[in-house]
């Protein structure tokens, strides 16, 4: 077991974990952050995407011990109190989700994308979300959602 100290959604957690524990499993089973979900075992689906020190990562592909000393933002920590993050607002407005299982990862991938490129074209949005699979929407409304989020955040889509 190894000791880790990780700040998740603004709260610091101290825990003893086995080195083999995946970050996503620690989030879900260790500290009850079940908003982050697992969809595959080959890093393809991106459902487990979180922000690690501000950048999107697939939390199934990071060991919990590797997050020691880091800050993690999950879908549960994105809103500011009752104030939705613009990406969350945009996904609702543009019907960017159906079953919602890919949504936590998709939203955080979009947050990361817009952080790097506040003014993405449709092609850039599609490229930025390439690591997140959705089986419900055909991506059409997800792409629209991200473009709309860019507008809400003051960037706007090319």
């Amino acid at each position: 077991m190894q000791h880790i100290s990780v700040t998740v959604d603004g709260m610091e957690y101290n825990a003893e974990v086995e080195p083999r524990t995946l970050l996503v499993h620690w989030l879900r089973n260790g500290i009850g952050k079940v908003g982050t979900v697992v969809g595959c075992d080959t890093s393809n689906c991106g459902a487990c995407t979180v922000l690690l020190d501000g950048r999107s990562v697939k939390s199934c592909s990071v060991l919990a011990v590797q997050a020691n000393g880091s800050e993690v933002t999950t879908i549960q920590g994105l809103a500011d109190g009752n104030e939705w993050h613009p990406v969350q607002t945009a996904f609702k407005e543009c019907h960017g989700l159906q079953c919602g299982y890919c949504t936590p990862g998709m939203v955080l991938a979009a947050v990361d994308l817009l952080g790097e490129n506040p003014n993405p074209s449709e092609a850039e949005i599609r490229e930025g979300l390439e690591g997140n699979l959705c089986r419900c929407t055909g991506y059409h409304n997800i792409v629209k959602s991200v473009a709309y989020a860019a507008e809400l955040m003051g960037g706007g889509s090319k």
């Binding site: 609702k92 407005e93 919602g100």
Partner: peptide, 21 residues
């Protein structure tokens, strides 16, 4: 009409079966 379901789905406040502990 925008979906009622979305608020919980967009904030990770969902109840997937695997969440049940």
């Amino acid at each position: 009409i925008k979906r009622k379901e979305d608020a919980r789905l967009l904030h990770g406040q969902t109840n997937w079966t695997d969440n049940i502990q």
